[in-house]
Amino acid sequence: MAVVDINGVVDNNQVRRSWPLFKRIIWHFKHYWQLWCMAIPAMVFIAVFAYIPMYGVQLAFREFVPALGLTGGKWVGFKYFKQFFSSPMFGSTMINTFKISLGTLVFGFIAPIILALLINQLGSQKVKGFVQTITYMPHFISTVVIVAMLNIFLTPQTGIIGRFFGSQSTLDEPNAIAPVYWLSEVWQHCGWNAIIYLAALSSVDVSLYEAARMDGAGRLQLIRYVDIPTIMPTCVILLIMNMGSVLNVGFEKVWLMQNAMNMPGSEVISTYTFKIGIQSFQFSYGTAIGLFNTVINFVFLIVANEISRRVSDTSIF
């Protein structure tokens, strides 16, 4: 294509639009085969490792027959969902899941905002950088190590926290699992999650500060009337995205925190799916529980997105 002139290009597009379909397809691949080549590996991976399992969720509505794999077996409708809803585990896993995840959602949402507002108040770039470096650090520690640290620190009598909490480990206490989970999540990810708000805060129009100062605003008022409105859209977007995983309690962490004593408070949907679906080979039942979880998440995401679009005109789709 030797056309450099913008008008020339536009004309060519219009000419092509009148071509027959198959000629247009040939033209498309002749021009874009390289882009296709670059995208296809990723497309293949997504197709195989995301879409085939998605196709496989129909197992939730079928009997599992080993020889027939993901899609074989007789159609049984909602049998396994009914089995889950009427099982004694349904109530407790739902409550535990909601307790752990809603607390994480609320604290994990508010804490980074506060931290970012605080860090943003620091005048010197050096101090800012130092505080950020320190607060990011725990984000890189693996779940296994975090839970091990919790275990060691909460050991009765000898642990640095446990020695203040009597003779029983906090981790053995079913009612304490959720708060321990929330707090350790905030400790680990607060600094990291604050980055995005700090980025948003760095785009504040400086004249706003000056104008507010002229009107006699103190520092707290600047935060209230300039900083917070600035990061509001970012907050809303992140809140919606987090809503989409409201039932996605991190499997690894809960699994690692579980022990025989705290089980009444720590059995969540994802760990139960693992026990049913993988450890005791009830594949269809496990798929059904997993699908139920996904659907609830999806509903939360859509609802949060709709509300936010109506209220604040911010949405992710």
Binding site: I46, V48, Y51, I52, Y55, V57, S270, T273, G277, G290
Partner: peptide, 18 residues
């Protein structure tokens, strides 16, 4: 199609069987 997989996935058991 890519983004959709962030919010909707087959789940543990279909992955395992695949």
């Amino acid at each position: 199609l890519f983004t959709f997989t962030m919010y909707f996935a087959g789940g543990l058991v279909p992955n395992y069987l695949l």
